[in-house]
Amino acid sequence: MWIEKRTNHRFKFVEQYKDPLTDKYRRVCVTYNRNNCHTRKQAHLVLSKRINQRLIVAGNQILKPKITLVEVVHQWLNYFRPRVKFNTYRNNVSRAKHILNDLGNDTIITRINSCLLMNYFDNLFYVHHYKNSTVQKFRGTLNNIFKFAMQHRYLNRNPLNNVQINYHYNFSRNHLERNFLDDEELKAVLSYMYQRSPHYGRFCEFLYLTGLRYGEAASLYPKNIYPNSHGQVIAAVRGTLVQGKKQPSPKTTESIRDVVLPEQAIQLCINEMKSHDSPAKFVFTSDRGKPLGNTVLNTWLHHAKQDLRIRKHLSLHTFRHTHISKLAELGVPLYLIQARVGHKDAQTTKEIYLHVTKKAELILDNKLDQL
């Protein structure tokens, strides 16, 4: 700091600093009537405060030193993990590993541009043959990584903003019927699962009759099945099963719901609980009282697909889609179906609904000539 004497016995206290945006030196000053120990101390405090404020504003526009993609991903995953459900975190970890493998661990994050990302998404479509929905999930993971990088000043803009992904036109609709079973296929698959194990058969049939997700049905306690005030027996969905343990909340807020059980679903629960020598913790369990594992069930469904020669996608989630298609076939309004299966605004539910109702309209149109 230096002092310049002004006219009328006034003194200008001046300090110099380097602007990080321009690398040029700039000045700040303050004027007092006296030049003594007190005013010099006061001027130093005021000038330091002004310089710090300017440096903070400039610093917010300056990127931190160059950082690699792998470093950002690891930081983001540590930030992300306590904020989401376990399965959400695990799926993002899997996609992040894939992204790092394709884009390169040592890639400097500021060098990632829209051209590189468009080529990457094309690679997901035409090399890995991923579906639209899968590529959308990869885009979501990348978007979260870039947003995190912007918050920590590793990036000053999101490179995804200018990326136009060339999704397959009507890909999911052209293959929509592969997502759910017709009556004959459903009967054959359930019979196959009952032959493997009555526990497997009852569980899969329960999924079809209720539209519950695997984790929602597998985590049901006996106390979660009870009559409501209208005398209907419901399944109170209040959690999900993750690695054999019940989590306190299901997939989304909309997933917390009461699902009315048809008579057959009630009987399945009764038969399942009666099948155990001693009371089990969960409604649906193995002979040893353990929760039914989705890996084992999906493996047997894969065998069923091959043995029964079913040319459709077949997994535990197929029963949920089949439930939606059956409700649509019965004329249940879309908003009621969405509420029942715990979807606020799901594209798959809408597409199945529209597909089934349009098919029903076609059948009606063909029968009008018979009047």
Rank of each mutant, 00 (worst) to 15 (best):
Q61V: 02
Q61T: 06
Q61D: 05
I62V: 15
I62A: 10
K64P: 06
P65Y: 00
P65M: 00
K66P: 08
K66R: 11
K66T: 10
K66C: 02
I67Q: 11
I67V: 15
T68K: 15
T68Q: 12
L69I: 01
L69W: 02
V70Y: 09
E71P: 05
V72W: 03
V73F: 09
V73C: 15
H74V: 13
H74Q: 13
Q75E: 13
W76R: 07
L77E: 03
L77C: 02
N78D: 09
Y79M: 07
F80A: 02
R81Q: 10
P82E: 03
R83I: 02
R83M: 03
R83S: 00
V84K: 06
K85W: 00
F86S: 14
F86A: 03
F86D: 13
T88H: 07
T88Y: 07
Y89L: 01
Y89W: 03
Y89R: 00
Y89C: 00
R90C: 10
R90D: 12
R90E: 10
N91Y: 05
N92F: 12
N92D: 11
N92H: 12
N92S: 14
V93R: 08
V93N: 04
S94R: 15
R95Q: 09
R95K: 15
R95E: 03
A96V: 04
K97R: 12
K97L: 08
K97H: 10
H98E: 04
I99G: 01
I99V: 11
I99K: 05
N101L: 11
N101W: 08
L103D: 08
N105K: 12
D106C: 10
D106P: 01
T107P: 06
T107Y: 08
T107C: 12
T107R: 14
I108N: 07
I109C: 04
T110G: 11
R111V: 11
R111W: 12
I112F: 05
I112W: 07
I112V: 11
I112A: 01
N113E: 14
N113K: 13
N113V: 07
S114M: 00
S114I: 01
C115I: 13
C115H: 12
C115K: 09
M118D: 10
M118F: 05
Y120E: 03
Y120M: 07
F121I: 06
D122W: 12
D122H: 14
N123D: 10
N123I: 02
N123S: 14
L124P: 03
L124Q: 14
L124H: 07
V127D: 14
H128C: 04
H129S: 11
Y130A: 04
Y130C: 08
K131H: 05
K131F: 08
K131S: 10
N132S: 00
T134W: 01
T134D: 06
V135Q: 04
Q136S: 14
Q136E: 05
K137S: 14
F138R: 01
R139E: 06
R139Y: 05
R139I: 01
G140N: 04
L142Y: 00
N143E: 09
N143V: 12
N144H: 12
N144V: 04
I145V: 09
F146D: 13
F146W: 11
K147Q: 10
K147D: 01
A149F: 08
A149P: 13
Q151A: 07
Q151E: 11
H152N: 14
R153D: 02
R153N: 02
